[in-house]
Design a protein around this nucleic acid. Structure first.
Lengths: 157, 157
DNA sequence: TACAATCGACAACGTGGTTGTCTAAAATGG
DNA sequence: CCATTTTAGACAACCACGTTGTCGATTGTA
């Protein structure tokens, strides 16, 4: 099929779709009181979850070292999105939990993403969007959540 | 429509699709003699093009400072993928051109991406993949090529 | 009880990004 | 024609995020 698009357009479009959605999310998030959040912060907080976790566990979940996870937690703690506590059953562990502000940002993010999805559905149709999501679900690994994006893309080794 | 997927799945799937394709590209690229290329290098070389460019122009094209573009060129030059030359008509400008090795990596990348696209077409069907590409083309800006990914995602401001 | 494994912290380093400053060369304008 | 502004590239200082290596403290285990 010589009429097929060249293969390099596909990754570019996927990235642009991702970037467009995330940029619009953060523009709106900024208007709603969270101007200092970066794209990766949302993924990290999602990975922390409502039950909390530790730096080492977070690192494993995100595919980065525990030191890198610890630094990111430092940043989020400085911004007021997470809080550190102790584990009564294990003096080594320090539990990281979302603060009220952290939960608020996740709630708003979910709502904004729903709105953005609705706009996409209005543009190409709900059936087409549904098919797009279904196809991507087929083509991508199910439980994969890599968050080493800066290093992965730019190359820290 | 309470049966619609939550909005946050869409950006995640788009990113995973992008990441899956690029990871498989670089795995194969590594087997074909280019093990030290990072994801961003391909985008940068694509932006340099066969006609060559300058650091300042490259920075404008990629949305980063000329200093950042210059550093990336330093890296690619050290890896042997680009070469610096002078501009006979303007002593200030230093033209950056793809080396033979750089062109080879782009040719191989294009072929590998075509193969990966064919595999996706075999999985979900050429018509569905065609629709997916067409929809993404509708939903994303046409001539946008942002390469500040590490900073954009992680946050250098 | 001695030993191994785990957690969190610290240090050193590499890479990519930024801004600011500087010199040289080119474009502009009176 | 010359003075001024603009542009390109190099250099330095700095920040963010990643890595590996090391360490003390705590927990699990043979």
């Amino acid at each position: 099929m010589s009429s097929d698009p060249p293969g390099f357009e596909l990754p570019l479009r996927l990235f642009l779709g991702f970037r467009t959605l995330v940029d619009e999310l953060h523009a709106e998030l900024g208007r709603q009181g969270h101007p200092d959040l970066r794209p990766m912060h949302g993924f990290v907080m999602q990975a922390i979850g409502t039950r909390g976790t530790t730096a080492a566990e977070l690192g494993r979940r995100l595919g980065v070292s525990k030191q890198a996870a610890g630094k990111t937690i430092d940043t989020l703690e400085g911004l007021g999105y997470v809080e550190r506590g102790t584990d009564p059953g294990d003096a080594r562990r320090k539990i990281v939990r979302l603060s009220e502000r952290g939960v608020d940002s996740l709630v708003r993010s979910a709502r904004i993403f729903d709105d953005l999805r609705a706009r996409w559905a209005a543009t190409i149709g709900e059936d087409r969007l549904h098919a797009l999501e279904a196809d991507l679900r087929t083509l991508t690994p199910p439980d994969y959540f890599p968050l080493d994006v800066p290093g992965w893309f730019g190359g820290y080794q």
